[in-house]
């Protein structure tokens, strides 16, 4: 009966994951490997293609005829280039803020989460959301680039590296993490449980009532351990390897927050989305 409960928990979290997150790993991998019936993503590999594609960023559906539209941009001037980079950064922020809401809805569906002290719910989310967003990006990435805009656009890693500093340094650590993380070959059912484990971390600073959080996490950890054994019978020590990723994640998040602070100082026209500002303030 206990194993049945743990399996039911895994099923419940997977269903909530499917309900709350628009682009699953299964769909992203199908797009990246060209095995989807939909059209291939629009590729952004330089400033010209970014200008062509930017009107579709954060659109769930690209009007297909526009794929072949050509802008007459022979050389993008540097001030225009700065503007385009900043606009792109703002659209990344809006998508991130939307994803924070998705993670929040997912957290609320974890059995027992809404019974925790409200202050602790806020603290758990504040510390977990960027970690979860970084893991959510991994299935969208391969060594050459990343899907964005719900899988409608593929942006190359080289292009992201060619942006001006500090934008150019921002995504490289996420690619390095993702390439390694993807080697674990987790699927969407594994990811759903892993997200819940991350959210229910009892060691976040400022928590008021740690015990009920640890109790909830222990239950999800048991469910994850059992699920990984059944889902990946040949993958040795997978449970331990997955948990180890949580340490790497904390460093990536702390570096990310540092990047954003640098940006705030160096970019006069930069305004940070209020929700992201709230999350990053006094985070690390």
């Amino acid at each position: 009966p206990e194993a049945a409960d743990l399996r039911a928990l895994a099923k419940h979290l997977y269903e909530s994951y499917l309900k709350n997150f628009p682009l699953t790993k299964a769909k992203a991998r199908a797009i990246l490997s060209g095995k989807t019936s939909d059209n291939a993503p629009f590729v952004v590999h330089d400033m010209k293609s970014l200008l062509e594609g930017e009107q579709f960023i954060n659109c769930r559906q690209i009007p297909r005829q526009d794929h072949h539209r050509h802008l007459n941009v022979s050389s993008v001037q540097s001030d225009l280039q700065r503007e385009v980079e900043l606009r792109f950064f703002h659209s990344c922020q809006s998508r991130s803020a939307e994803a924070v809401s998705e993670v929040t809805e997912f957290a609320k569906s974890i059995p027992g989460f809404l019974n925790l002290d409200l202050n602790d719910q806020v603290t758990l989310l504040k510390y977990a959301v960027i970690e979860v967003l970084i893991i959510m990006m991994a299935p969208l990435m391969n060594k050459d680039g990343t899907l964005i805009s719900y899988g409608q656009i593929f942006m190359t890693r080289e292009f992201l590296k060619s942006l001006r500093k500090p934008f150019s340094d921002m995504m490289e650590p996420k690619f390095e993490f993702s390439v390694k993380f993807n080697m674990l070959e987790l699927d969407d059912t594994d990811m759903a449980l892993f997200f819940a484990v991350i959210i229910l971390s009892g060691d976040r600073p400022g928590l008021l009532n740690v015990k009920p959080i640890e109790d909830l996490q222990e239950n999800v950890l048991h469910s994850l351990e059992l699920h990984l054994k059944m889902n990946h019978p040949d993958s040795l020590h997978l449970f331990a390897k997955v948990l180890q990723k949580m340490t790497d994640l904390r460093q990536i998040v702390s570096d990310h927050v540092h990047f954003i602070q640098l940006l705030k100082e160096s970019e006069i026209n930069m305004c940070l989305h209020p929700l992201l500002q709230e999350i990053m303030k006094d985070l690390y």
Binding site: S101, T104, E105, K108, L118, V122, L125, L275, I279
Partner: peptide
Amino acid sequence: TERHKILHRLLQDSSPADG
């Protein structure tokens, strides 16, 4: 929670599926 007004609101909002 006052310094996290938006997060707080997101937590308290009932999701569309819950009516």
